[in-house]
Amino acid sequence: MEQPLLELRQVSKNYKLEDSKQELEVLTNINFMVQRGEFVSIVGPSGCGKSTLLSIIVGLIAPNDGECLYKGEVVKKPSLERGLVFQEPRLLPWLTVKDNIGLAGEYDEGLLKKMDLEDFSHAFPHELSGGMASRVALARALAPRPDLLLLDEPLATLDQNLRSKLQGELQRIWKDEGVTCILVTHDLNEALALGTRLIVLGKRPGTILHDTSLQDSMEKEAMKEQVLTWMEG
């Protein structure tokens, strides 16, 4: 069997609350594998640890228990092989679009063109619309040519029209660039529309309630009700 690109083994994460000695259990016993070329959507209610899970995969934080393996090696720190797109674009306001994209990787004119941003390469973030800023954030994560792209609700702050448009772009990038994607979202429609596989997390502390591959649109539609019940349960 081919080595998975990513593997999480019994990952748990607690946070110490600042005001007390209590610990907040955010994730518990998370196990799953991701193969190359998959588009995994992770859904769950707010506060179930979805973003924490991505931070562990990126290497920004370490799990309290279990381990996260990337290409068979334990993740200890961030790597350019794993690109992260945050919920907000988080563009450095004092850098132009071009400089923001080129922060970590080689500045690529082609990437700018693909993202439809070539006319804005010298613009500052405050001169961009929300959609453009999201595209720049995506381009910044793609610039170092990562094998795994982690998307932390990158479209959550956009209106519906823009969201649909960027969902299409995400799917195009996944197909064209051959990058493996993990999308975290609380929007089930988005998860079903983009993913080839769906992981459902339950309420905090987040555990995997369901992990299934998504074949066709009929199946996706049929799953909706069931997933909603899981999430609410």
């Binding site: 674009p89 306001p93 500052f124 973030p125 405050h126 961009l128 929300g130 800023a133 999201s134």
Partner: peptide, 18 residues
């Protein structure tokens, strides 16, 4: 550029935070 980030942003949501 520091001053300009305090300028108004476009009306769409999701721009950068100054």
């Amino acid at each position: 550029s520091w001053r300009s980030v305090q300028g108004t942003r476009r009306s769409e949501k999701g721009g950068t935070t100054a």
